[in-house]
Design a protein around this nucleic acid. Structure first.
Length: 218
DNA sequence: CATTTGATGTTCT
DNA sequence: GAACATCAAATGC
């Protein structure tokens, strides 16, 4: 699995913003390595960002849960694109989900970002997420974090190396703090261990039967 | 605090 | 017409 050392090396060589080639490798490796990095979105409202604490890998090819499994369609066209770009799609007609495309173009692989720890623009996030009674509810889910950051369909296909969408190196997460579980909210290949999260982090999404111990009031 | 239910509308069969 | 990488409100402890 990958490594904070590699991340550090990349950081010194490329600067804080993760370069497109950084995503050009095994999707599981990227999913793990994205933990601790910072996702930022700039809009006319301002800048909002958060530290990634939960991801899921979706593998092109044999993964029946990946959108690429249905082949190339209008909706998933950027999922088949080059690595280091955004794949943003609407789910349940109401919410947006954000992915970072991985592996060489044509593979149809990506990492879904499922939860963030808010860093910058918390007031903006509160405004965008009026239903969130506590700050813990601002970004603890794939649809929630898109709403909080202002990520919408217009961001589909954009690179992740310059505004409005940027992923940069953050505080590394050591291997012993990484937990791997089955993915959430899917029916096919649901048992595959492709969900990565920061152990005991209060900002991860709520999963049935696994609720938080700690209370966080906004 | 834990579990269930209804809303939502686009995408694909 | 069914499925869907979800969310929030309502219900039951």
């Amino acid at each position: 699995m990958t490594t904070d050392a590699a991340l550090t090396a990349r950081r010194s060589r490329f600067g804080a913003v993760l370069p497109a080639v950084w995503y050009d490798r095994d999707t599981r490796v990227v999913a793990r390595a994205l933990l601790g990095t910072v996702l930022e979105c700039r809009t006319e409202e301002g800048v909002a960002s958060g530290r990634i604490v939960e991801t899921e890998a979706y593998l092109g090819g044999d993964d029946p849960a990946c959108h690429a499994a249905v082949g190339l369609t209008e909706r998933n066209r950027h999922l088949h694109g080059p690595p280091g770009i955004a794949y943003v799609y609407r789910i349940y007609g109401a919410h947006w989900c954000f992915n970072a495309v991985t592996e060489p173009a044509g593979k149809g692989s990506a990492v879904l970002v499922r939860a963030l720890e808010p860093l910058v623009g918390i007031e903006i996030m509160r405004r965008r997420r009026p239903a969130a009674r506590r700050d813990i509810d601002l970004t603890s889910g794939p649809g929630k974090l898109c709403a909080a950051l202002g990520i919408v369909g217009a961001h589909d296909g954009l690179p992740l190396q310059r505004p409005p969408l940027v992923i940069r190196a953050g505080t590394p997460v050591p291997d012993d703090a990484v937990e791997v579980t089955p993915r959430i909210g899917i029916t096919r290949a649901a048992e595959w261990p492709l969900r990565f999260l920061v152990r005991d982090n209060p900002w991860v999404s709520r999963t049935p039967g696994h609720f938080f111990r700690r209370r966080f009031e906004g």
